[in-house]
Simulated assay, not measured.
Amino acid sequence: MQWLIVIHVVSAIIGIGPTFFGHILFRRRQQEEQLRQSLALFQLLNLFPKIGGSIAVVSGVVLVSLSGWKFSDLWIWISLVLYVLIQVVAVGLLTPVVNQLKQVLDGEEERSTAMDVSTSAAMLLTKANRLYNTASFLGFVLILLMIIKPM
């Protein structure tokens, strides 16, 4: 059972951890080339929540099955809901914003002036940061819940 706990904790850290890097990747006042590098890193870091998060959920379900906890326990439901919300924010909402930002930088969207590009990129960057703040907050609550769960 100890090895399963280790797998669960490590995969959770790997799965939620990259959420906290978004604030660095999508910081304001970056040069265009820096932002392009940040977008490339985002694509790479995006693999970790998918893999680590999936392993964390599976190992968590196995842990609940093998321990004295019940799937009807409120903290388990809250944890699962938080995980789903993080996925919705990170994958469902943030990824399209990042793709739009990439399109703006690549010049694929219609634009009339350079000012429109920087304004559009700044708005998308602000939106991405808000979504990252939301995902980070939910991740922090999830980690806190895992630490102080009922014994």
Rank of each mutant, 00 (worst) to 15 (best):
M1C: 05
W3N: 10
W3F: 10
W3L: 08
L4A: 07
I5G: 00
V6C: 01
H8A: 09
H8G: 01
V9F: 04
S11V: 03
I13N: 00
G15K: 09
I16Q: 08
I16P: 05
G17N: 09
P18T: 01
T19Y: 01
T19H: 05
F20G: 04
F21M: 14
F21T: 13
H23R: 10
H23S: 08
L25D: 04
L25M: 13
R27S: 06
R28H: 12
R29T: 06
Q31D: 00
Q31V: 06
E32P: 10
E33M: 06
L35G: 09
L35M: 12
R36N: 07
R36W: 04
Q37T: 13
L39I: 15
L39S: 12
L41M: 14
L41Y: 14
N46A: 13
N46Y: 05
L47Q: 11
L47R: 12
L47W: 07
K50V: 07
I51T: 11
I51H: 02
G52Q: 01
G53I: 02
I55C: 03
I55D: 04
I55W: 02
I55P: 00
I55T: 06
V57Y: 01
S59Q: 05
G60I: 00
G60N: 05
V62Q: 03
V62A: 15
V62I: 14
V64A: 09
V64T: 14
L66N: 06
S67W: 08
G68K: 03
G68C: 00
W69A: 00
S72L: 11
L74Q: 09
L74C: 03
L74P: 03
L80V: 01
V81I: 15
L82D: 05
Y83Q: 08
Y83K: 03
L85N: 12
L85V: 10
I86D: 02
I86C: 14
Q87E: 08
Q87T: 09
V88N: 07
V89M: 06
A90T: 15
V91F: 12
V91C: 03
V91P: 01
V91S: 06
G92E: 12
G92D: 12
L93I: 04
L94F: 07
L94S: 05
T95K: 15
P96V: 00
V97P: 00
V97D: 09
V97K: 03
V97I: 13
V98Q: 04
N99C: 01
Q100Y: 07
Q100D: 15
L101Q: 10
K102F: 11
V104Q: 13
L105M: 13
L105A: 11
L105C: 10
D106T: 02
G107K: 07
G107P: 07
E109F: 13
E109Y: 11
S112M: 10
T113H: 12
A114M: 13
D116E: 15
A121P: 08
A121M: 06
A121G: 07
A122G: 11
A122C: 03
M123Y: 04
L124K: 06
K127F: 04
K127C: 02
L131F: 11
N133L: 12
T134P: 04
S136D: 14
S136W: 05
F137R: 07
F137M: 13
G139C: 14
G139A: 15
V141L: 15
L142P: 00
L142C: 09
I143T: 15
L145T: 08
M146F: 04
K149M: 02
P150E: 00
